[in-house]
């Protein structure tokens, strides 16, 4: 990775550490600054409230000219989040700007939680429920909130309709 990208990532980390947005924290892997782990709390007064969701961010050599890849580790139920945790967010694709930093990315992801765009669904079922049956949608979101309190390595049993769990990543738990 170029020194320019690394320098910017260190600066991003400093900003995130000294002036963190509410309910957000993140940190680069000490051996590899291109890989970050982050935690986002669900925004208050939304169905996602109390959820503590884990994500990874990976950066390329072209950062900040190219966006990072953001992926949820926690199981999510959201119209714009694929079952493998990848998400569909315009600012991480064609609306990306090199003026964004890690804090801005995580803040955007956090606000996406309660502000989904059902027009471009990544999870068709979630999008459908969000439009047609908000009660059921909220119930399903709340199960993911509860699941987020546990180690996501534990297999979480969900309604089979939750969809392509084949691509999900339940893995054996390692004793911590």
């Amino acid at each position: 990775m170029s020194t320019t990208a690394k320098r910017r990532l260190i600066r991003d980390f400093k900003r995130l550490a000294s002036d963190p947005p509410v309910g957000i924290s993140g940190s680069p892997n000490p051996d590899n600054i291109m890989i970050w782990n982050a935690v986002i709390f669900g925004p208050p007064d939304t169905p996602f409230e109390d959820g503590s969701f884990r994500l990874t961010l990976t950066f390329s050599d072209s950062y900040p000219n190219k966006p990072p890849t953001v992926r949820f580790v926690s199981k999510m139920f959201h119209p714009n989040i694929y079952s493998n945790g990848e998400l569909c967010l315009d600012i991480l694709q064609n609306r990306w700007s090199p003026t964004y930093d890690v804090a801005a990315v995580l803040t955007s992801v956090q606000s996406l939680l309660n502000d989904p765009n059902p027009q471009s669904p990544a999870n068709v079922e979630a999008a459908q429920l969000y439009k047609d049956n908000i009660k059921e949608y909220e119930r399903r979101v709340k199960t993911t909130v509860e699941a987020s309190w546990m180690d996501p390595n534990e297999t979480i049993e969900e309604a089979p309709a939750a969809g392509s769990s084949a691509t999900a990543q339940p893995a054996p738990v390692q004793a911590a």
């Binding site: 957000i24 990874t56 691509t167």
Partner: peptide, 30 residues
């Protein structure tokens, strides 16, 4: 290579397994 590896299902699962403590620390930080 580590970044590439993260794009595979197994690599991602392994990263998640190894990062449990780190995620917990981040949660406590908030």
């Amino acid at each position: 290579e580590a970044v590439e590896n993260l794009k595979t299902t197994e690599g991602f699962a392994e990263h998640v397994r190894n990062s449990g403590a780190e995620f917990e620390r981040l949660r406590k930080e908030i």
